[in-house]
Amino acid sequence: MLKEQIQKELKIFGLNGFEHPIFYHCHTGIRFEIGVGDVYDNDGVPLKEYVDNALNRAMKIYNNGIKCPSILVWGVYPQNDEEKHNFQIVFQEKIASIPPQEEYSRDIKVDDNKTKTTEFYWDLQKSKIPMEKIFQEIILGDLGGVQEFVSSVYLFDIENHVMLHLYDDRGLDIVAYDKNTLMPLYQKFNIWILDYDRERINKIFLD
Rank of each mutant, 00 (worst) to 15 (best):
I34T: 13
G37M: 00
K67Y: 04
E33R: 15
H25Q: 15
I30L: 09
I22F: 04
K84M: 11
H20Y: 12
V51G: 10
K84D: 10
P69I: 03
A54P: 13
P78E: 06
N56T: 10
G29H: 01
F32N: 14
F18A: 11
E49P: 01
V39M: 08
E19Y: 03
L55C: 13
N16W: 06
H27W: 06
I71L: 06
F32C: 09
N16H: 06
A54E: 01
V45N: 12
I61E: 04
N63M: 09
P69K: 02
D38Y: 10
G65R: 03
N53K: 12
L10M: 08
V73G: 06
C68K: 12
H27G: 08
D43Y: 03
V36G: 07
I34W: 13
Y24I: 06
V36I: 11
P78K: 11
P78L: 07
K84I: 01
E82N: 14
I12L: 08
K84A: 13
H25I: 03
Q7H: 14
P46Y: 05
I71H: 01
V76G: 02
V45I: 10
A58G: 09
C68R: 11
V73D: 00
V76F: 02
I71Y: 09
P69R: 00
F87S: 06
V36A: 15
I61H: 02
V73R: 03
L72P: 03
P69W: 00
L10R: 06
D81F: 08
Y77R: 10
L10D: 01
V39C: 07
Y24D: 12
W74Q: 08
P78Y: 06
L15H: 11
C26N: 08
V39D: 05
G14D: 08
